[in-house]
Simulated scan of single mutants.
Amino acid sequence: MYDFKPAAPLDTEALYRELLAAAEALTADEPDGVANMANVAALLWEFLPDLNWAGFYRVAPAKGGGTDELVLGPFVGRPACIRIPFGRGVCGAAAQQGATQLVADVHAFPGHIACDAASASELVVPVLRDGAVVAVIDLDSPSPSRFTAEDAAGIEALAALLAERV
């Protein structure tokens, strides 16, 4: 049986290779997007050190109608903001721009939404299907500058794998 966590400390490239293999194994034959997001949030928590939040926000209709917004999806960590408008905070910027947001200091990010005051850095990667954002993967850390370009590339590969599975 696969344990779904790294067996030993790994370099970044090997860590993301194992994370992708685990995500592939868990989501390949499961059509339920929420179940897949839940398992991948747990994988992120197990594989990536120094996180205080790991999970998803899904694109959904705004409460009361109107423009789509991000709505909290499966995650591991403290309770979080439930709804985030496109363009607001790091997650909203990633959704609006359809581009990865790698933020070394969230307190310097214009419009940052502080769901957890302990968060110091953040990595948010959009999940794109047919060119449209369907979700974002959100990682928070209590350490400044926790995330690197290698982390961004690894999570972007994960987002591509999940595009048709969430």
Rank of each mutant, 00 (worst) to 15 (best):
M1N: 15
Y2M: 13
D3T: 14
D3E: 09
D3W: 00
F4V: 02
K5F: 07
P6N: 08
A7V: 12
A8V: 14
P9W: 05
L10C: 11
A14S: 15
L15K: 11
L15C: 12
L15V: 12
Y16K: 14
R17Y: 12
R17A: 15
E18R: 11
L19A: 07
L19E: 06
L20M: 06
A21T: 01
A22N: 10
E24Q: 14
E24D: 11
E24C: 04
A25E: 12
A25G: 10
D29W: 13
D29P: 00
D29Y: 14
E30G: 04
P31M: 03
P31N: 07
G33I: 01
A35F: 07
N36D: 03
N36L: 05
M37G: 08
M37R: 01
A38G: 10
A38M: 11
A41V: 03
A42Y: 00
L43V: 13
L43Y: 14
W45E: 14
W45H: 14
F47T: 05
L48M: 10
P49N: 06
P49W: 09
N52V: 08
A54C: 10
G55N: 01
R58Q: 13
V59I: 15
A60T: 09
A62S: 15
K63H: 09
G65Q: 01
G65E: 04
G66W: 04
G66R: 08
T67L: 08
T67G: 02
E69C: 13
E69D: 02
E69W: 11
L70W: 12
L70G: 08
P74W: 13
F75D: 04
A80M: 12
C81W: 05
F86A: 04
G87I: 07
R88K: 15
R88I: 05
V90P: 01
V90Y: 09
G92R: 05
A94Q: 06
A94F: 09
A95C: 11
Q97M: 04
Q97R: 08
V103R: 13
V103P: 08
V103D: 06
A104T: 05
A104F: 01
V106Y: 00
H107S: 10
H107V: 00
H107K: 03
A108G: 09
G111D: 10
H112M: 09
A114E: 06
A114C: 07
D116W: 06
A117D: 12
A118S: 11
S119H: 07
A120N: 07
S121W: 12
S121T: 09
E122L: 00
L123R: 09
V124T: 13
V127C: 11
L128V: 01
D130W: 02
D130A: 15
G131Y: 13
V133D: 02
A135G: 06
V136L: 02
D138A: 03
D140R: 01
D140A: 08
S143Y: 03
S143H: 12
P144I: 02
P144E: 14
S145H: 15
F147K: 09
D151H: 15
A153I: 05
A153M: 10
A153P: 06
G154R: 05
G154N: 10
G154K: 04
E156R: 02
E156K: 07
A157M: 00
L158F: 03
L162N: 03
L162A: 01
L162C: 03
E164R: 12
V166T: 13
